[in-house]
Write a protein that binds this DNA or RNA. Structure first.
Lengths: 386, 386
DNA sequence: TTGAAAGCGCTAACAC
DNA sequence: GTGTTAGCGCTTTCAA
């Protein structure tokens, strides 16, 4: 815990205006090298630090000859500007933060990609963290990113409507806002009126409605909803759309047919296996997402149940695995990458640096649509467990 | 490269040529709020800034009552420490940078996950960038991360042995090193003696050797090597292992059977389709990675060629898709996540803050092994295009 | 076109 | 235990 700064050899400390001959921040290896600073560059080029700064930022006229000398000096010294100093001195840190559950989950990876690309267009770098589904971790990361003065902090994915958590996040949102940053909710519900956030949503409920209706149109009425943490907003919305479709067609939802759990492949596999042996009857499965669908597909396969002849299967998200499964999975497409892009645009405006133009509105909702592939067929006479 | 602010990442040059100045980074909305600083907290709590600092850092005794007052003040003011100021004042920025080709590629995503997790253990945040296979972009990102004074900059994935590029990267490595940071090469060859880097490799050649041998043992001799950028170190190593195995069994490599290209699914699909119609004969396919294998599998499927009965197929990397393909793909396992973890450990030492102990050695190589699943069978009488 | 100098917010000697 | 104070490296008035 002791960030001791290897201090100064007192003798040289005070002499010339540029008295700088000490060393700090040594690498563990013996090096002795100190990083070059503007002052070094200025001295070497025989100009003032102000001029060096102007050369770097190209925001003020500098004589060609001077510029050349300065640039040569920078090269000679291996000078690399210190972003911390620059940020401290007033400039933006040119950083956006993004917090996802899990980087290896394509749902998040695609959104992260959108964020990264859009950020890069604006010359910004991305801080990315994985909260692993833990709200406390998420909150801690928001704080860490605030400390870094990120231009925007984007939290991705569904959330649980916990009282304490929500108000805590709202507080962070206010603090960020007060400092000129923005908290962006990506794929989750708003925090409430008093929280200054931006938001990018997608029509989650609508997608679930559409794909359920697709199933209903094929004659399926006993549809198993499988997976997804029951308290997560994502699950709730999907379930809501699912039920709305059911009710619209006069099908009464059977509680036994709602088997929530997690978003994992493993859950899909295990629960499906159990249900096939000893569960309610159904002719179609609506997996909470494509990953769960992959697990379910394996269970079905192992049980000798044919998809879609015996049972139809659909997923959600339309991540790449949907195209690798056999039969190829019918699912709901979500504009993941675009969500990521919009999230940063919402918070920091278009690519260019000095965005006088107001960033996009404060919230937007992108559409979803179903992608019909090969995993759905008209209902046959059979049901699971025949 | 111009030591000036390396833009290049975005489409537009930020820094408009003319005065950007004015207006110190306020939020676009009218806020007027200034962020609280240590000084504010100190005043509010009736103590000095030093005390506030001590309370925050818990690195020096502070009276309970004082601490309480300070903490209350921080809370009241919504104080959030400024990491830039802190870093400037001497502390480490507690950041590690990682540069990958593509976040949605599981190969990189797993490594990134390892990096993120290990970094988080040490209380560090990750800057992540996607170079998209462009060496210039990569170089620019290294620079940007250096500006941010990342404790380590990890570049992931194969590289092409370009003269200029290599020396440029080596230069950056030296600059980073001089400042106490480390450039870590993850899954790529060293830069040469004069470059102070750390490195995490995996036994790429060995894995290719092993899986080729596996194919040979099943009687396959005409093995098609499919995909991967021909100049990339990754491809070269895999091909080297492949050929070594061939030669060891007395099989003369047929140039026609080496069809390099890219690492994409699409390439696998298209080239495979072409080859099936009009190419050399072969009884097995060694896809450069699992993604290419997925594409090849689809081509095979559409051509009515059975795997593994008619043709055997193997991949490389052992990413999740390998388990979704039917038949499940035999492939080479690479300890991706572990590579990421080791990369940060190598550069910044174990989790704890003041790592006086020297980080792990300067380079290490992790093992690979084949994972036998269902996509390989003994050679049948048939060959492709019978 | 250039220079001098005042900070930005924080940490860490060094007093007291 | 706590306060004073001198920077850390850069940007940006304000003068020249």
């Amino acid at each position: 815990m002791n960030p001791t700064r290897p201090q100064a050899l007192g003798s040289t400390t005070h002499n010339s205006p540029q008295g700088v001959s000490r060393m700090r921040r040594q690498s563990t290896a013996a090096d002795g090298q100190r990083r070059a600073t503007v002052t070094d560059v200025a001295r070497q080029a025989g100009v003032s630090t102000a001029t060096v700064s102007r050369v770097m930022n190209r925001n003020y006229p500098v004589a060609e000859a001077t510029r050349a000398r300065v640039e040569a000096a920078m090269r000679d010294l291996g000078y690399v500007v210190n972003a911390h100093a620059r940020a401290l001195a007033g400039a933006s840190g040119r950083t956006v933060g993004i917090i996802v559950n899990e980087l290896i989950d394509p749902f998040y990876a695609y959104i992260a990609r959108g964020v990264e690309r859009e950020a890069a267009l604006g010359g910004r770098l991305c801080l990315v963290c994985c909260a692993q589904g833990d709200p406390q971790r998420e909150l801690a990361f928001v704080e860490l990113m605030h400390e870094r003065r990120a231009d925007a902090v984007i939290v991705v994915g569904g959330s649980v409507a916990d009282r304490g958590y929500t108000s805590e996040l709202a507080r962070r949102a206010r603090e960020l806002d007060a400092g000129g940053s923005k908290l962006v909710l990506c794929g989750r519900p708003p925090l409430g009126e008093q929280a200054p956030t931006a938001a990018v949503e997608y029509d989650n409920e609508g997608g679930a409605f559409a794909i359920t209706d697709h199933l209903l149109m094929q004659g399926h009425e006993r549809i198993l909803y499988l997976g997804g943490p029951p308290k997560l907003s994502t699950t709730r919305d999907r379930l809501a759309g699912h039920r709305r479709a059911l009710e619209l067609r006069g099908v009464t939802p059977d509680p036994e047919l709602t088997q929530t759990g997690t978003f994992s492949r493993n859950f899909g596999y295990r629960r499906m296996t159990e249900l096939l042996q000893d569960g309610p009857e159904f002719t179609a499965v609506f997996a909470a997402n494509d990953i769960v669908a992959a697990g379910a597909a394996q269970a079905l396969e192992e049980a000798g149940v044919r998809v879609p002849e015996d049972i139809s299967l659909v997923g959600y998200d339309d991540i790449p695995v949907a195209q690798e499964l056999r039969p190829r999975l019918t699912t709901v497409h979500v504009p993941l990458e675009e969500m990521g892009r919009q999230a940063v645009r919402l918070a920091v405006g278009g690519g260019d640096e000095d965005d006088w133009r107001e960033p996009t509105a404060g919230a937007l909702r992108l559409g979803t649509h179903i992608v019909v592939r090969d995993s759905v067929a008209p209902r046959s006479g059979r049901t699971a467990r025949m």
